[in-house]
Nucleic acid binder design. Sequence first.
DNA 1: AATGAATGAGTTTTCATTCAT
DNA 2: AATGAATGAAAACTCATTCAT
Lengths: 218, 218, 218, 218
Amino acid sequence: MNDLVHTEPRRRRKEARPQELTAAALALFVEKGFAATRLEEVAARAGVSKGTLYLYFDSKEALFKAVIQEGVVPVLAEGEALLDEHDDPVVLLRAILFGWWERIGSTELGGVVKLMLSEARNFPEVATFYNEAVIQRGLALIRSAVVRGISRGVFRPIDLDSIGTILVAPLMHLALWRNSFGACCGPTIGGIDRYLDCYFDLILNGLGVVRDLPEDRT
Amino acid sequence: MNDLVHTEPRRRRKEARPQELTAAALALFVEKGFAATRLEEVAARAGVSKGTLYLYFDSKEALFKAVIQEGVVPVLAEGEALLDEHDDPVVLLRAILFGWWERIGSTELGGVVKLMLSEARNFPEVATFYNEAVIQRGLALIRSAVVRGISRGVFRPIDLDSIGTILVAPLMHLALWRNSFGACCGPTIGGIDRYLDCYFDLILNGLGVVRDLPEDRT
Amino acid sequence: MNDLVHTEPRRRRKEARPQELTAAALALFVEKGFAATRLEEVAARAGVSKGTLYLYFDSKEALFKAVIQEGVVPVLAEGEALLDEHDDPVVLLRAILFGWWERIGSTELGGVVKLMLSEARNFPEVATFYNEAVIQRGLALIRSAVVRGISRGVFRPIDLDSIGTILVAPLMHLALWRNSFGACCGPTIGGIDRYLDCYFDLILNGLGVVRDLPEDRT
Amino acid sequence: MNDLVHTEPRRRRKEARPQELTAAALALFVEKGFAATRLEEVAARAGVSKGTLYLYFDSKEALFKAVIQEGVVPVLAEGEALLDEHDDPVVLLRAILFGWWERIGSTELGGVVKLMLSEARNFPEVATFYNEAVIQRGLALIRSAVVRGISRGVFRPIDLDSIGTILVAPLMHLALWRNSFGACCGPTIGGIDRYLDCYFDLILNGLGVVRDLPEDRT
DNA sequence: AATGAATGAGTTTTCATTCAT
DNA sequence: AATGAATGAAAACTCATTCAT
């Protein structure tokens, strides 16, 4: 009864709770899907009781929304800041794509991609929000880099409406795999670094960049 | 009660049932996910009663397995036949990738991709089966085409462990989008044909194919 | 498992179920109140399982509405028919009031009075419906009898806006008592018949009827 | 946080707490019923926290008992005092009945009638207590007045076991209505004063009082 | 073979009660 | 004394599964 172990201050708990809960929820939603996740599991994973969840979230659905909302938005600002940090289109594009992989794709947050994809049709409003706040904004960022590359003659002219999605797909795929088949079937690829190198090499060539020519031609 | 309208032969009906049921199940599993789909809905969509489902499938899980199993396997054989049909690596690669899109990705069957991805961790054995029977086999097919291209000097040397997944990702992405955000947020791209053209153009260039040179050099 | 006892035909059950369920619900709602009644109890009392309730009623609230709706309406038509059956205002008034007691107040249906009174503020729409469909209609019926009595010079002129409620109150009270204190404290009165006689004697005299004078004056 | 406004002496506050709490509880119990009332609401209405309730009452049930106990008892002594204050049976009866209406029926305390009626079967001991301490004592008071009237030849002989309840019923009804349908359906009657006049006029006549004759005969 | 009424285990949600601060 | 975060038992509600017809 007198809990000599649990000396963590109450106040501190209170403020940290919502994020502890959404973190637990994210992990389980990604693993099992929204419907198949029991709130009791979420609570247990966060080390609280079932009822405590309801002190912070009105319903399972509200928890889902909080998970998504809290998930990804802040990182995009950083991405957009890259536009000013880097001048060279190739460097910029690399920074954007690899930056996403390092900050999102390869972390727990990468699970949001799978989660949102799986549940989009069950939560159309959330999906709409996510599409506008994250996806379209991310695609616009990539397009900006591509446009800069084209205007400088570094990239070939290309269909700007398609290129963002095409460029991003192999990274998304990696994040999706990690959170689906990866758990039971191991990797399909030789290694993540090799994958990323091969990927970036392919798209740069695809965009018409003649990187190594100077060296090769020597 | 006395069904004077439905003159379809009984024999045929009975044999077609399982596929009518898996088709209905696929559509709903893709839309809502496995856990959120009620068997009553599946039955209703197939025009039978809830009890009838159990004449054909032992359980909801058995239905899921049937949906996956029946879903994709036959098409792969056709894909592998392409290796002999086409000699030119570029033509072959195009036939494989676009063929997949036409036969699978753009059809109802494309939903299996989203479904399997969403449920892989809930059904590890099914996922393992699907990985071996479909994914690895598909990737091997693409690799074969790439290997042929490299050995003929049409493609640049490239990391064979990664390239399959990378090449396929933008197509998968399209299929996933159709069955997730597409339902509520519309397309992110300018149009499917443009997307496919841009995509193939990008990867061909990425693979080092100098397609138009002869013409341009004229 | 093989239920040799329960040979009652299925079809018949299906049709009778809703009323078996509302009857069980009425009894328990009256006894414990709406909130304190568990649906499992209702189901048990009706001899079915918890889930079966939901085949017939969407929610606990829907069950409540059905209980009220089904409860009392039909009887009022009979009451209104009395207006034509009896000419003498005293006989008519007696028929209305005692008829209500016999058909409603003294039966299971009398519980609806307590139930509706207890829950009116929790279900304003139901209360409004009940007020219009039952209470106001019933009061109008009594007023009609009183008006007839006054116009024939049998009753004294009296406030028609108040008299209905006043006349009915002692009967309501009896019905309320039966379903509240009556269960634990026994009757407050000497006996129901004596109560009814005393009651009708009081109100007749109150209405100015000089019944026994002819005899006394002899 | 630092409550500079609330200069009310602490001592006073502390002593008044229990009654502030029972008052809040009464209002909510009457409105929603015991089971449907959440203690958090009670606390909020009394301006304290949920936990504070438990400093004064051991449980929700204890709070209920306190609400009832505190509710009505003191007023009865005043009523019984009327027996000596008034000699004329008509004046006495009027003082008792209208006095109850003014002190109880028309006030917040009138809600106890509805509350106790609704919950009697859930709290048989409380109901028994209330019946003996309030109802039977009140009925005895009325009977005393009636007995005096009969013995003086002002009232007709009448069934003493029934008359108390009958006389009180229209007043109870008014109190019940105020706390049930009254909240959503408005009044059924023309006005409270008219109702009370009509009511007392009816029962006086019903009791055989020939009030106005002397005046009229002049 | 087909039905759909019935079941009951399982899940979300609520709320009286406790207790560390 | 007072608070309000935390608990967990209990209740509403869902739905895969069964089985009499």
